[in-house]
């Protein structure tokens, strides 16, 4: 075991990791930050997306030791210190962009990255960007609406093709 230290949600945090310890397990087991979910563990579903040095990555496919010293933002670091939801989080609530909520942390982290790169995406761009995030209950339409709303654009009444 090796001690691994990262700046997580703005604070320096340390926990032990084996060579094989995944970033998602280091966050969940080592730091008890269980907001980042493991949906598939096969690098497909996107529920474990966190921001690593500002960019979205699948935390189930990154080794913790490999990114020792990195800056990480998880879903716990997205809302304000007083609990005020971020624009994206609030839009997910307003537009019913979740049902069971399991995929939501990854969806919010991915959508937040999208709007940082592309503040006014088209609906097609939203759908393309979220291709790596799988939701098994909301069915995506309300998620897309939430992201459109979070970008300050008109929200389509009916989902496009």
């Amino acid at each position: 075991m090796t001690k691994v230290t990262m700046t997580v949600n703005g604070k320096s945090r340390s926990a032990e990791a084996e060579g094989r310890t995944l970033l998602v397990d280091w966050l969940r087991e080592g730091l008890r930050l269980t907001g980042t979910h493991v949906g598939c563990d096969t690098t497909q579903c996107g529920a474990c997306i966190v921001h690593l040095n500002g960019e979205p990555v699948k935390a189930c496919s990154v080794l913790a030791q490999e990114v020792d010293g990195a800056e990480v933002t998880t879903i716990e670091g997205v809302a304000g210190a007083d609990g005020t939801l971020s624009t994206v989080q609030q839009a997910f609530q307003d537009y019913h962009g979740l049902q069971c909520g399991f995929c939501t942390p990854g969806m919010v982290m991915a959508a937040t990255s999208l709007l940082k790169e592309n503040p006014r995406p088209s609906e097609a761009e939203v759908r393309h960007y979220l291709e790596g995030n799988i939701c098994r209950c909301t069915g995506y339409h309300n998620i897309v609406k939430a992201v459109m709303a979070a970008s300050g654009q008109d929200v389509p009444a009916v989902a496009a093709e």
């Binding site: 496919s61 990154v62 991915a110 790596g132």
Partner: peptide, 9 residues
């Protein structure tokens, strides 16, 4: 290739 998160790694 893949999706944005995969392309970052």
């Amino acid at each position: 290739i893949g999706d944005p998160a995969v392309r970052n790694r």
